[in-house]
């Protein structure tokens, strides 16, 4: 592995341009979050480049034991980031795939191996980028509200970015961030796991939802589209009115409200 998990990362100065890698989940299921991520970056005077040829990081195949399929998909993404700009990804899990697993996927490939490694070094998850590179801040807006954050396992254990999401929310003066019971535990998504082992996945999701609901927070935030698909799909099926929102959408809403 070329990059240590959860390493203490040194961050560059704020750049003029970034690439946005929107992820396949946001592309089809939550494009608002992707647009909000772009808006947040642009609002800090960063030009956002969204390569139209991007599709997916290849993770679904990779975690299911199909490395060739994953490589085929990932290889098509490697040529999309020709300029030496940071690549911002509004998902801990896809960012983890690109940062930690792409170099490994191409380690035996003399041409793509070094390219994958150089790209990996430029991959940032959105919240760490906003916190450490953009150094974004939010003024006081609106009424006080209780917010509960669900952090994805990859954000926590592969990228170390669960803290940056928390720190960003803590910066918003009128937000009271509350922690749910068993906060560190997985929501049960896990890609193909959710359909290969539906009973276990559903048990995990329902425990997670009960813990979140028990906080009494009116708003649930996550920085990962996959977790949100799972949790929102379960919430709606249960007839709950609570819905999780992508952190990009939430933050952009605050930025607009403040203006």
């Amino acid at each position: 592995m070329s990059v240590a998990l959860n390493e203490v990362r040194s961050y560059p100065a704020k750049p003029g341009d970034v690439y946005l890698f929107g992820t396949c989940v946001l592309d089809l299921f939550d494009p608002d979050a992707g647009v909000s991520a772009a808006s947040l970056l642009e609002n800090s005077n960063i030009s956002v480049h969204y390569p139209q040829d991007q599709t997916c990081c290849g993770q679904p195949a990779y975690t299911s034991g199909f490395p060739d399929a994953a490589r085929q998909v990932a290889a098509r993404q490697l040529h999309l980031f020709a300029e030496n700009w940071p690549i911002v990804v509004p998902s801990g899990s896809c960012a983890g795939m690109m940062r930690h697993h792409w170099p490994r996927l191409f380690e035996d490939d003399p041409a793509l191996g070094p390219l994958a490694a150089s790209i990996a070094a430029r991959v940032f998850e959105l919240t760490e980028f906003l916190l450490h590179v953009v150094k974004a801040t939010w003024p006081q807006t609106g009424a006080n509200e209780r917010v509960v954050l669900h952090t994805s396992c990859t954000a926590r254990r592969e990228m170390g970015t669960h803290l940056s999401a928390r720190a960003l929310l803590a910066q918003i003066p009128n937000v009271e961030l509350v922690l749910q019971d068993h906060e560190t535990e997985c929501c049960g998504f896990g890609g193909a796991f959710s359909v290969k082992h539906p009973e276990i996945s559903a048990a995990m999701a329902s425990d997670k939802i009960e813990a979140i609901e028990a906080t009494g927070a009116a708003t649930m935030i996550s920085a990962d589209g996959g977790c949100l698909l799972n949790l929102n799909g379960t919430l709606e099926k249960r007839g709950s009115t609570l819905r999780g929102q992508h952190i990009a959408s939430y933050l952009w809403q605050h930025a607009k409200d403040a203006a």
């Binding site: 929107g22 946001l26 939550d30 494009p31 608002d32 799972n230 799909g233």
Partner: peptide
């Protein structure tokens, strides 16, 4: 198996690709 405990996945009206292109 997805819909045993969740509502069906339903795509948004416009993809992120489209929205980024038009803005």
């Amino acid at each position: 198996a997805w819909t045993r405990s969740r509502v069906p996945l339903r795509p948004a009206g416009h993809s992120l690709h489209e929205r980024m292109k038009s803005r």
